[in-house]
């Protein structure tokens, strides 16, 4: 099985590894896992007052494809509005990284992670505006 250059690049030089302050009201945290392979992925976004994602971080324990997928997503969502970021599809991630069929589930994980982070952020907004 040969991996694409883009995938290897994200794997060798993952972007935006790290954590944001979970307690911050502007930070949304998504934590998802793929038990089939034991992967666990944490993806966080910080949203500014204009509803734009100004920072994104991830921490993934899993295979190279899972790491590359989450790295790519953090890169993609930065500078996007929350609504735009929500439309990211796993198929786009898989296509960009040229994931082999057995690794498609890693891109699903990344899509679920960003969705979960956005949902967490929205929950916080709802709570503070109530």
């Amino acid at each position: 099985m040969s991996y694409s250059d883009k995938l290897l690049d994200h794997y060798d030089n993952p972007r935006n590894v790290g954590s944001l302050d979970k307690a911050d009201d502007n930070v949304g945290t998504g934590l998802v896992g793929a038990p089939a392979c034991g992967d666990v992925m944490k993806l966080q976004i910080r949203v500014n007052d204009d509803g734009v994602i100004e920072d994104a971080k991830f921490k993934t324990f899993g295979c190279g494809s899972a790491i590359a997928s989450s790295s790519l997503v953090t890169e993609w969502v930065k500078g996007k509005s929350v609504d735009e970021a929500e439309t990211i599809k796993n198929t786009e991630i898989a296509a960009h990284l040229a994931l082999p069929p057995v690794k498609i589930h890693c891109s699903v994980l990344a899509e679920d992670a960003i969705k979960a982070a956005i949902a967490d952020y929205r929950n916080k907004v709802d709570r503070t505006t109530e």
């Binding site: 934590l31 998802v32 896992g33 038990p35 089939a36 921490k59 324990f61 994980l109 679920d112």
Partner: peptide, 22 residues
């Protein structure tokens, strides 16, 4: 069991623990 091929789980407590142990 959740997580057959492609399924993901969002059980925050378990995943936090797994993250921490990792």
């Amino acid at each position: 069991v959740a997580g057959g091929d492609g399924d993901t789980v969002a059980d925050p407590e378990l995943l936090m623990e797994v993250m921490e142990l990792n």
